[in-house]
Design a protein around this nucleic acid. Structure first.
Lengths: 207, 207, 207, 207
DNA sequence: ACTTAAGCGAGACGGTACGTCCAGTCTTCGT
DNA sequence: ACGAAGACTGGACGTACCGTCTCGCTTAAGT
């Protein structure tokens, strides 16, 4: 994977590889081609390296020199879209959670991203390696949720015995999972986030 | 899709089509081949029609006569595994939910099923048509969850103003979603179900 | 082959086969379908049994019950077109030969026949059995040529030491062979026949 | 067709096409595979591209990149067998014609060639384009025959008013045509050539 | 300025799988 | 027991991509 190569290079910064350095233009053209193709091509997975190379005006070898598989390339393309984790006003646990959850999941932002994330999560199952990379993309947002939950506990707003991990999962799964057979098709992201947060905060049991 | 054909035929049961009827043996051999291949071949999506035909001892045309795409075939193969919705003892809302949730999701039962469901959910996004079929497979279990929730409300165990749909989503998403970056990799299905149910029932907010 | 079946049946004419007799309508429909398809479909050899069955409104088995291969069917279709051997006025050896040669070969008559014979001769190479059948179709005309040649010798019009077989071949080959790279594309059948006959009768050598 | 591509390239020999050049090894392996298969497989037309690719150790696409149809490939395979036009001693018109005719036609030389030419002539009817190519293979020998005939006329050995084209056809048709129902099955090539030449030179008519 | 080494676009390579079409056989009806 | 219909196995068709491998050509760093 690309980023690995960069890290490896960074280990010994004096040593410059001989020969012509890799073209940053080609690199960007490839990423753009991936995103464009995903964007046009709502039906994902018909995304072929051949098409990426053609669209980027690049030889296939130039792609494989940087990414050793289609999956890695797509992960990197997704990573390039990584949204800044939203700034939190920090006034209310509930509002912070709604903000964070809204920014999660496939439909989080620009249309272009939708397809990328949807495609990604379907590919990611396959190899543990890809999961690690995918995690790097989504984990920051998950960590912010944990922080908010812990802050809530500390402030006494949330239960002292809160199971933070399970609560995190319960909150995020409805946002990142596929919208099949559920609510997500009918209501918008913000409303979904609000209802999920409220349901999880308040609980179902009568007291 | 196969089941569609059957339904259509059922509309006019007197009228027999002329010619040799389709072989039930071939049909079953194809389904079995799919399940076997998925089973051996943990890495899904390397599942080829060519291999299915060979394994089933069937011509490719015989497959395409029944299913017009690989996706449809896999959905039908999955449907053939449809578990009986678990019987509920009906003593406690909490226990019933744990039972139902445990039976949900990709790792619900026999190993063979795991792969099928995992493969399935990654394919299903693509076409609205497939989603409809997938829904038919999973919806019964979702409906049972709704019933339990409504029963809980009626019995006064759950909040009177419970948002049943959101609660259903909040409960099921962690079970059916991909296990990426979450708890599912560390803990078993039953424990996950218990912790999710407890978290959702009790809520996070201090009261 | 069909005609064989008929001959076999003729051996014992009292004995009627049990069951429903074969439909003469189907038989004719199949032959007609072959001829029609060859006719439309100038590009021969794309003639499929499937298409014949469809065009004749007949099951494929009905064809295979009568003819055991595509080649046999085509030979029989050709035989059904067998022209009556032309009547000869018998006044002049030269004119009789021109008449006979004109009636030979693929372009001899109705357009429909052209394709059949062209197709036929390309298939016929393959099996000695087919050659026998093909011979039965063309041999009568060849025999008439031999008769005319022998008559010419008897009458003293042709050389006493004439090699009848070679002369027959030399006369007929230009008419039945494919028109590739030769004269046949430029001049019509009658003119070709006349020039061939004259050249062969008169010889090339100066005397 | 392949040779066309080569000729086109020859028009501007400086200009190299970009990309990896085509492998001459693959090209030869394909041609060899065709000839070998025809050779083993006396029953022609069962010759499949699949088998050619497998035997040549080549991807099917590599074949289709060079020849757009099976027919073209076979024509090129035949052309690769093109015999050198035989050297003529030039002493006698009759002997030269026998030599030339003997080298004509499907059974001219090595066994391998027989099948190729036989297969070829059955395919060639179909498209004018193929005929052009086939002509290129056979025309040189035909032209030599014309030359001999003209020389004979000039030397006074042959009739002054000889119809060269018809005589050429009359001589070559028995050699190249199918051996159906004729002499070719009984006598060998050389004898056939001699008898044909003698019959045509001397003529049939008594004088 | 001159090597040297790796980059570049292009496109051919051996392969695998696709979805379609036909061959020749088999199985079910209804006549 | 036939005829018509059509499903059956098998296998070739021609196409699209896979990931790799040349080509001839830049492009820089290090002589």
């Amino acid at each position: 994977m690309n980023s690995m190569t960069q890290s490896t290079a960074a280990v010994d910064p004096d040593k410059r590889t001989p020969g012509r350095p890799r073209s940053a233009r080609a690199e960007q053209a490839i990423i753009d081609a991936v995103l464009d193709l995903i964007n046009e091509n709502v039906a994902i997975e018909a995304l072929s390296m051949e098409a990426v190379a053609a669209k980027a005006g690049v030889g296939k070898a130039t792609i494989y020199r940087r990414w050793s598989s289609k999956e890695e390339l797509i992960v990197d393309a997704a990573a390039s879209l990584k949204l800044p984790v939203p700034d939190l006003v920090g006034e209310s646990v509930r509002d912070d959670l709604v903000t964070l959850l809204t920014s999660m999941g496939p439909s989080a932002s620009a249309q272009r991203r939708e397809g990328v994330f949807s495609c990604l999560s379907s590919q990611v199952q396959r190899s543990p390696e890809l999961q690690v990379w995918y995690m790097k993309v989504i984990e920051p947002r998950r960590e912010r949720v944990r922080e908010v939950l812990r802050r809530g506990v500390a402030e006494g707003v949330l239960r002292a015995d809160l199971d933070v991990e399970v609560t995190l999962t319960v909150l995020s799964a409805p946002m990142t999972g596929r919208p099949i057979g559920g609510l997500q098709t009918q209501i918008d992201r913000v409303e979904l986030a609000e209802r999920v947060v409220d349901a999880v905060l308040d609980g179902a049991r009568e007291r």
